[in-house]
């Protein structure tokens, strides 16, 4: 299964972090820092895998991909195929690209919640759920539509209710 998904920028700031096995926040910070430490020591054009047993315990590997200012990192175990995980990163990034039209780091900074929505459609509890970015987009759009709809309705009654309760 997939243990964690992280997006870290080249300065080491996390932009997205999701751990599928529960970790305390302090542990999360440490793990991200460790992963970043390894990532930034690696040259360009080398292989995208890192042995991660020292951080994530036995049977864990890291695959990462470097796009512009961001590292996309997946942590997984032996029940996943290494190259398939690399493809899954591609799927994730492609979907984000469709979502934001030429995705850049700033999009990810300001659309924290949407990134989670996208990720949740691709991975569920560490399991690969969907690998087709069109399908993912369909679901994400539907969710956003419902979300804005529910917010739009909420605007009037909320102010009314607060006035009324005065």
């Amino acid at each position: 299964m997939i243990r964690a998904v992280m997006v870290i920028n080249t300065q080491g700031k996390p932009r997205l972090a999701k751990f599928y096995d529960i970790q305390a926040v302090e542990k999360q910070r440490e793990l991200i820092r460790n992963v970043y430490g390894v990532l930034c020591s690696r040259a360009e054009n080398v292989s995208n895998f890192i042995e991660a047993e020292s951080f994530f315990g036995p049977d864990s590997r890291i695959v990462y991909k470097h796009f512009a200012t961001l590292y996309f990192v997946f942590v997984f175990d032996s029940s996943e195929n290494e190259l398939a995980m690399l493809d899954l990163i591609q799927v994730f990034v492609e979907t984000l690209d469709k979502c934001f039209k030429n995705v850049c780091e700033l999009d990810m900074v300001f659309n924290y919640s949407k990134m989670h929505t996208v990720l949740d459609e691709i991975i569920l509890g560490g399991q690969v759920l969907e690998t087709n970015s069109t399908e993912v987009m369909k679901a994400v759009e539907e969710i956003s539509r419902l979300e804005t709809a529910s917010n739009a309705i909420s605007l009037v009654p909320k102010s009314v209710s607060s006035w009324r309760s005065r």
Partner: peptide, 28 residues
Amino acid sequence: SSLYFYDMSWAAFHVVELMSSTRFAHKR
């Protein structure tokens, strides 16, 4: 909590409260 690693376990009850919201955005 997710990106700056602040503990949010203290807010667990508020999470539960909000879960029962009828509005999808809040529920999510």
